[in-house]
Write a protein that binds this DNA or RNA. Structure first.
Lengths: 360, 360
DNA sequence: CAGGCTTTTGCACACGATTGCAAAGAGTAT
DNA sequence: ATACTCTTTGCAATCGTGTGCAAAAGCCTG
């Protein structure tokens, strides 16, 4: 690799002169500056950012920690963050925490070792675990912004959705069209009063609807969702609506319902949460709550960059709350007549009466 | 930020001793080593990788360039690569080239400046444009591996699918169940003899089927797909099958067909390419060609790491070809009776007879 | 106790860039 | 010719680590 020294020798000047010339410093004679720039270009010189970063004590890199990238919610965030970061002149170091508590800590530690200028942390479903790491980060003055609610983190910058509100809107919509036996399905999360489940449950209670244990399914993988759906359908009194509290799970729910020959929404209403692009691909199109991912990402990045730029700014921690909106599409309708399920079409012991459409 | 020096002062030794102690060097007295390690841990010391990288002339980072991350094909690659890289002890620097020729060059240049140990480049649809950058990279000895076929790049390491074979299998399947008026839809690509389109077309020709201009639609965005589908349906002799040569596009095709009240596969067969998870969510489940993304990613990363480890290995450039397989699911069936479209149900002037299922 | 060997530590330089400061060179007024 | 200013360049220190080599310290043997 070719260095400043090499160019200096080529040009017959000192390396400091080359450095200044390439940086466009006005201290250098315009003629020599041009000559050096040309020379460097011809020689294919590329600055060694590692050395530069060491000297200037900044890497122009932000670290992005995301649980995974298969759930289509996260790629959307990654794409937006990447675009915004690039626009602002920052590189992106991506870390996938795998929703694992231990791994999250490792990710943050690694980013810290790399001396990234700031960290964007998208919290996994279960909330932030790597608290020690985050505190250490704050103590050493590295800006960090969280996306998603985390308990007991009032002193940390945060961008979150008022999912509670979205959840209750969704519930009220379902109640409004006549549902009262509603199941919920997803991975349990404890994100306090800002959680989508919190709002959903609250709205149900408000309407005097009790949510029995039977109707609460924990599931994250394809197979778990399948089991969950099967269990729901096998109940003496199956639900008339299912709230899968992530669009990606709702997609799976619809898939398994269809495989079981239940018509959505005629025989079962399904709603999701997030308003991914996916929601519009689905058949039927999914009723969901839009999280305004774009605004989330925008505030997320701008807040961090603002913190990086003037690290001394002692405006207290910011908590930015973004209100989502209900998006009503075709996947929900009035509850079916009581006898439809179980007697006429559904066979809990196997999908035999009406073969599923896939063959693999 | 706390440095080796600081720890050295704390421990009353020189910074070299601390460096060695933390690295677990056998040169250091076990007692002092432990004492120093404890001290460093307590003080919250974290090595400055920037300085370390400069000294050891390696960053333990690989750069991953991907066009975007919204098309669900790429996140899958990103996830796999990230996991494999982490396992091998490498960090990941993600760059989104945006399928833009200029941007791709910038990405590579940036990665080079950062002195990543190697680069994984997933070529955009149109093939590699930043040839200069890649050549420069090779010249300076930085390993690079391409994913996806690129013309005139025989001297570069490459992992690709034998998409041609997959394409022809797909075509033969369609022909086998009776289709002869088949449309193709996607973004034009010129990836030579390894392209899925190449194989598809070849198989058609072999069967004596001509692919008229009308039946070739160029489309990448939702709206373009919609227009394309509309145009196909409005033809005097509409196709009986559509080959959307990316699953993500096939998803859109199905969506717009459904909105237009055409039943898949009864009235229109749709097939895709890639076998994304998405393909199984769709209704009906999508017949497609599986690209074995996992094996792609695995070979992709291992080849690069192998190159990094023994940079001197002068085994010539490797071209790894992975054969995809046909995955038959519910989205294809025999061609419909001729009069079905246009007369009975389809209304090219608006989706009025049968309202689409979404309301936004 | 001298001399040799082994273990343990420190000195000093290198990695490749940035930058304050001094110095050299050029031009000008006194 | 001197002194002074202004422009242009080079010297040298610095960022935080890693590491070859020398030196110190400890141990053993004769």
């Amino acid at each position: 690799m070719i260095t400043l020294q090499d160019i200096a020798r080529l040009a017959g000047v000192s390396h400091s002169t080359v450095s200044r010339a390439l940086a466009g410093s006005p201290l250098i004679n315009p003629d020599t500056r041009q000559r050096i720039q040309l020379l460097a270009h011809e020689a294919g010189y590329q600055v060694n950012q590692v050395a530069r970063n060491l000297k200037v004590r900044s890497t122009c890199t932000i670290g992005l920690v995301v649980p995974e990238v298969l759930n289509p919610y996260y790629p959307k965030v990654v794409q937006l963050v990447a675009d915004l970061a690039r626009e602002a002149g920052y590189n992106l170091q991506l870390q996938l925490s795998g929703a694992d508590q231990k791994a999250e800590a490792t990710c943050i530690a690694s980013l810290r070792e790399q001396r990234v200028d700031g960290i964007l942390l998208v919290t996994a479903e279960h909330g932030l675990v790597a608290r020690d790491q985050v505190e250490a980060l704050l103590a050493s003055g590295v800006p960090i912004v969280l996306m998603g609610w985390v308990e007991d983190a009032e002193h940390i910058d945060m961008v979150m959705g008022d999912d509670s509100k979205g959840g209750s809107e969704l519930a009220r919509h379902l109640i409004g069209i006549g549902h009262s036996r509603i199941a919920i399905l997803g991975k349990t999360a404890h994100r306090g009063v800002y959680d989508r489940l919190f709002g959903f449950r609250a709205a149900l209670e408000e309407a005097g609807i009790v949510l029995s244990e039977d109707l609460q399914i924990e599931a994250t993988s394809d197979i778990e969702v399948k089991r969950g759906v099967t269990r729901l359908l096998a109940l003496p009194a199956p639900p008339t609506a299912i709230f899968a509290y992530q669009d990606s799970l709702a997609a799976l729910v619809i898939k398994h319902l269809t495989d079981a020959c239940l018509a959505v929404p005629q025989e079962m209403t399904v709603v999701g949460f997030d308003d991914l692009d996916l929601a519009a691909y689905l058949c039927p199109h999914l009723t969901t709550v839009g999280g305004h991912i774009e605004s989330h990402a925008f505030r997320f990045v701008s807040l961090l960059i603002e913190r990086i730029r003037k690290a001394s700014s002692d405006t207290g921690p910011q908590h930015i709350v973004i209100t989502p909106r209900l998006v009503v599409r075709g996947s929900c309708g009035p509850p079916r007549k009581e006898e439809t399920i179980g007697n006429r079409r559904y066979h809990p012991n196997g999908y035999t009466q009406c073969a599923p459409t896939h063959t693999d």
